[in-house]
Design a protein around this nucleic acid. Structure first.
Length: 200
DNA sequence: TGAAGGATGATCT
DNA sequence: GATCATCCTTCAA
């Protein structure tokens, strides 16, 4: 079952980031479906969050996608190399987003290995936002695409993590954000080998 | 028109 | 642990 529009239009992006753990993220490109279980996310909480691209209500060609209504993809390039996939949440005009940092491979593993130029399944196949983007074939062409589409979507299945299995902590790579860098907006499954960086 | 820097990952030592 | 690849976005002039 695809997550309904209402899952994404909630106003608490931090809560949505937590609730995305255990959901299944898929892409279907050239007739091949690839995807896995979301095990690590980060929330970017609107115009007051110094770590967000939309801090201070900054609206540019790039950030415009974050101002869309919840339930579309925000894809951008980082360090000139990595395509990052985010889920836009909340109402139109509220630039909230959740960065998907890691998934546990579940479907289309051969294709993901090929895209990553790997021969064996190892944790770094889909650990880290750049790796997730590459393994799933996500590019900036998918920026702004609806998550109700048949190209890019998130499903709810019989998979739930309890609060005991989940840990929150400060976000990765946002030292420039001052005190906001300390906010516990990163969520991950404790001990899961596909989680990037510290996973306990 | 240009310069600075980045929500990272792979590959070294 | 340190370095580097690599290029788009942003902002200043």
């Amino acid at each position: 079952m695809k997550l309904p529009e209402t899952f994404y239009t909630g106003t608490d992006v931090v809560q949505i980031a937590r609730n995305l753990l255990g959901k299944y993220l898929f892409t279907r490109l050239d007739g091949v479906t690839t995807g896995g279980i979301i095990v690590e996310t980060e929330a970017y909480n609107g115009v007051t969050d110094k770590a967000s691209h939309a801090y201070g209500n900054r609206r540019t060609a790039r950030t415009e996608t974050m101002y869309a209504h919840g339930g579309v993809a925000y894809v951008y390039l980082c360090y000139g190399i990595h395509e990052m996939f985010n889920v836009v949440t909340s109402a139109a005009g509220q630039p909230h987003a959740v960065l998907i940092r890691a998934i546990e491979p579940a479907e289309g593993i051969d294709t993901m290995l090929y895209r990553r130029n790997m021969s064996l399944v190892q944790p770094n196949l889909t650990a880290g936002p750049g790796s997730v983007g590459k393994a799933l074939g996500i590019s900036r062409k998918l920026n702004g695409m609806s998550l109700q589409s048949d190209v890019l979507w998130i499903e709810e299945r019989e998979k739930y993590y309890t609060d005991e299995e989940i840990k929150a902590g400060p976000r990765i790579g946002v030292a420039y954000a001052g005190e906001d860098a300390l906010l516990p907006y990163r969520f991950f499954v404790k001990g899961n080998i596909y989680v990037s960086k510290p996973n306990r």
